[in-house]
Design a binder for these strands. Structure first.
Length: 278
DNA sequence: CAATATACCTGGATGC
DNA sequence: TGCATCCAGGTATATT
């Protein structure tokens, strides 16, 4: 489920339930995710620590502890964080379970194990965060996400604009669903060489990115999953999809059938009339 | 440097 | 019902 909106919805859903709570126990499935579970660091730097707040950078959640250490969680392709009662039955693929001091549990469930869990110990956490953040691209909901910046990022680039939007080193948090939706709303063909977009094009991309991501957050993201258990509602943004998953269905603007193709191995949808070929 | 391929995994949908 | 195949919201690394 997780692109920027889903990660942000997860963050907001957990924030009030986690802040101020202490991690009273940690349990692991024993499986490795995309990277091995940092078992020892979890016990040394997260266990018995009080959670202060949760931030988000790109598609990563940063759970900040009172002592200064940070628990970093990436949901990968199938990761979900749920807040459940401690006596609720555990599930297959629950890979990390944090028991809180009020008996509730935060459970990270990830069937494909493309997610990641990292710990930045308090000593060096600032450096770790700087290094990490420097690798991640512009935040689409941040002030620096402007037509001018995007034009500069795309300068002389021949790669398709969709690839640029999905390149996390350049733009953070936009994955396959939202890249498709943003480009449709911007009336730009996904295969257009990024360097060929005008400042006017980038203006629309920046504005539509903000609009769509905000709307997706407000509607709870694009999932059918009950990923927040106790507090969580499913997402409803899929009801707003204009092109994603709509192969051969009529374009909601002009009626032409939506085309599905493959770009860098990812399903790519567009309206051949509203988004004319470059 | 740019674009593609592959690898990491499971599970649901589809087709025979 | 069983089995093979393809596909899926991500990212890092290898390879042309």
């Amino acid at each position: 489920m997780p692109e920027l909106p889903e990660v942000e919805v997860t963050r907001r859903g957990l924030l009030d339930h986690l802040s101020g709570r202490t991690v009273a126990a940690i349990a692991l499935s024993g499986h490795r995710l995309r990277i091995p579970m940092p078992c020892r660091q979890l016990r040394e730097h997260i266990l018995d620590q009080r959670i202060v707040t949760i931030d988000r950078r790109a598609k990563y959640l940063l759970v900040r502890m009172a002592g200064g250490s940070v628990l970093v969680i990436h949901l990968g392709m199938t990761g979900k964080l749920g807040l459940l009662d401690g006596d609720a039955p555990r599930h297959r693929h629950d890979h990390l379970i944090l028991t809180l001091d009020n008996g509730k549990e935060v459970r990270f469930n990830d069937s494909r194990r493309f997610g990641a869990v990292m710990v930045w110990p308090a000593e060096g956490a600032e450096n770790a965060e700087c290094t990490f953040s420097a690798r991640e691209g512009l935040e689409p909901l941040g002030e620096e996400f402007t037509a001018g910046q995007l034009l500069r990022l795309a300068e002389r680039k021949t790669a398709p604009v969709k690839s640029l939007l999905m390149n996390g080193r350049l733009v953070a948090g936009i994955g396959n669903i939202y890249a498709n939706e943003i480009l449709f709303a911007s009336r730009i063909h996904p295969l257009t060489p990024a360097g060929r977009l005008t400042v006017d094009d980038w203006q629309r991309v920046a504005a539509e990115s903000r609009r769509i991501l905000h709307l997706a957050i407000a509607t709870g993201g694009s999932t059918i999953a009950d990923f927040l258990g106790a507090t969580g509602h499913p997402g409803y943004f899929q009801l707003h999809f204009q092109v994603y998953g709509r192969k051969d269905l009529p374009c909601l603007l002009c009626g032409q059938p939506i085309v599905k193709t493959s770009l860098a191995g990812r399903a790519t949808y567009f309206c051949p009339a509203c988004q004319p070929a470059p």
